[in-house]
């Protein structure tokens, strides 16, 4: 694996993967790639059968793949503690799960996506907050598996707090979201002591008031009945997309 330093060379490498029949998971956009390169956290490995991009995180690597020939072996093992999320949709039968199983990966989580339509005119504006990021990061790390939770790096959380993309109830509950042409709930967390009081639902309702003028999405664990109930009560419904998160991490790594 090579640390990527040159965006132009990487862009050309990615373009070479755009061949009929290519299998891929979520594509990193130009801006995301540039940020990862600037941080020094992007690694790449290209071979005749595809391209792996790895985003380095404190406890694991996140894999983005382009597979053009499943019979060609990568020739280099992926680092331990690599996590990959495979998209699953009825219109896209994906053979990548078998491929990653052959590389020693196994499934650890199935996610389902829910969508909410445009509601109308926003009833509330997003405002930045000066809440300290540390307790919120602690809350996120206590509530989510770092491998599958898509948790923000500290500087990303600081940016989101100042941009109004984190809704909070003190430091006991938060909803973090992205806000572009569509809005997407990234994490929703309530500390265990305050569960059962409707905090999660009130944060989602507030998110809906802020993002009413655009479509909204959320990915959540397919077995997470509490979260599914909250989202469906606030107007979200499954839209057919699911994903399978796989890892090559050994169980005893925690």
């Amino acid at each position: 694996m090579q640390t990527v330093r040159d965006y132009a060379a990487l862009s050309a490498q990615i373009s070479r993967q755009f061949r009929p029949g290519v299998l891929a998971n979520r594509t990193l956009g130009a801006e995301e790639l540039r940020q990862e390169i600037a941080r020094g956290t992007l690694l790449a490995h290209a071979w005749e059968g595809g391209l792996f991009l790895l985003r380095r995180r404190p406890t694991h690597f996140i894999l983005h793949y382009y597979l053009t020939d499943l019979s060609a072996q990568p020739g280099q093992a992926l680092p331990p503690d690599t996590v990959v999320e495979l998209p699953l949709h009825p219109r896209r039968p994906d053979k990548a799960a078998d491929y990653f199983a052959s590389l020693g990966f196994s499934g650890i989580l199935r996610r389902v996506r829910l969508a909410r339509p445009v509601l109308g005119v926003p009833e509330e504006e997003a405002h930045g907050t000066d809440v300290s990021p540390e307790p919120l990061l602690q809350l996120l790390h206590a509530q989510f598996d770092a491998r599958t939770g898509c948790l923000p790096l500290p500087d990303e959380l600081v940016d989101d707090l100042s941009a109004g993309r984190v809704l909070t109830h003190g430091t006991d509950a938060l909803l973090r979201f992205s806000f572009d042409r569509t809005a997407e709930i990234r994490q929703l967390a309530v500390s265990p002591a305050l569960r059962g009081q409707g905090l999660a639902r009130s944060l989602v309702a507030r998110f809906n008031r802020i993002t009413a003028d655009r479509r909204a999405l959320v990915w959540t664990g397919a077995e997470n009945q509490a979260a599914l109930h909250v989202y469906q009560a606030e107007g979200f419904a499954p839209d057919g997309w699911q994903s399978l998160v796989m890892t090559n991490q050994q169980e005893n790594h925690g």
Binding site: V22, T27, A115, R215
Partner: peptide, 18 residues
């Protein structure tokens, strides 16, 4: 914007267009 196609579809579409 309406979610009729996704970034995952775009990789497929781009590959065919190229």
């Amino acid at each position: 914007d309406d979610g009729l196609i996704e970034s995952l579809d775009i990789v497929t579409i781009v590959s065919e267009l190229m």
